[in-house]
Amino acid sequence: MTPLSFGVALVAFVILGPLLGCFLTGADRIITARMQGRVGPPFLQPYYDVRKLLAKERRSLNSFQGYYLILALIMTILSGAFFFAGGNILLVVFLISLSSLFFIIAAYSTRSPYAEVGAGREIIQVLAYEPMIILLGVFFFLITDSFDTSAVASLELPLVVALPLVFAGLLFILTIKLRKSPFDLSFSHHAHQELVKGITTEMSGRSLAVVEITHWYENVLFLGYVGLFFVWAPPSTLILAVVVALAVYFLEIVIDNSFARVKWQFMLSWSWIVSLLCSALSLVLLAVLNGFVV
C-alpha cells in the first residue's frame, strides 16, 4: 500500500461507500417488504430518511455524543480505506474495534437507562464476533504470507478454496456485524422486536444520520471481507467477488426475516463455538493440505 493508493482508496470509499451502502439498504427494505407480503418503500428511501434526519432540529443530551459518533464514522472510513487500498488486514480490524468503541461510548455518555442496555449488548456483540475477525486475519496470513489485503491479487486460487471453514465462520458472525436478526441485539431495524431503540435510543436528528451512514460504510466494508475470499490473480474475479458479496447479502436478508432475536447467551456461546470449531478445523485442514501433521 502506497500513500497514493491509500489516497485513491480513501476518496473512492468516502464517495462510493455510502452510495453502495444506501443502495444495499434500499434493496434490503424492498426485498424484506416483499418477503413479508408488503410493497415496501421506494428504492431511495434510506437516502430520503437520512436527508430528513440531517434537516431536523438539533437536540442532544450532551455535546459529546455527537463527537464520539463522528469519531466512530471517521474510524470506519479509515479502516475501509485501508481495506480497499490493500492495507494491513489486522489494522483494519483494530480500527473497526475503535469505531465500535466510540459508538458504545456515545450511547453510554447519555446516562440513559435504555441506551445503556443497548451499549452493554453492543459490547457483548463485539465479544462474540471479535475472535473470528482476528483469526480470519491470521488465516489470511497463513495462506498469503502477508497481512496486506492486496496479497489476494497474486493468489492462484481463491481463499475460499483453502479456507472454506473460515469463510463459514465469517458468515456466522457477519449476521452480528450487519445487525441482522437473530443477532441484532443492540438495536434492530425491525420495530416488532425492539424494546425501545436499544443503543440508539438517545440519538436523533444529525446524530442518528451519522449512525446510519456509518452503518452503510460498515456494510460495504464487511461485504468486502466476503469478497476477499473470492478474488485471485485474474482481475475479472473482482466481478465474481461482487456477485458473491451480493448473494451473501441476500442470504443475510433471508436469515433476517426467518429468525426472531435470540438471547445474548445464545449468540455469545454459539459465536464462540463456531469461531473455535471453524478455525481449529481449518488449522487441521491446512496441515493435511500441506502434507504435514502438526
Binding site: 474495534s97 468503541l101 461510548i105 455518555s109 446516562r111 445503556e116 465479544l127 471479535e130 483469526l135
Partner: peptide, 25 residues
C-alpha cells in the same frame, strides 16, 4: 493465536464497559 484472539475480545469487554461508566454524563 486462539488465546490471543479470544483474550483480545475479552479485554475489550473489561475496558469498554468501564469506559462507558467513566464517560457518562
Amino acid at each position: 493465536l486462539f488465546v490471543l484472539a479470544f483474550g483480545s475480545a475479552l479485554t475489550f469487554v473489561i475496558w469498554a464497559k468501564w469506559l462507558g461508566k467513566v464517560l457518562a454524563i
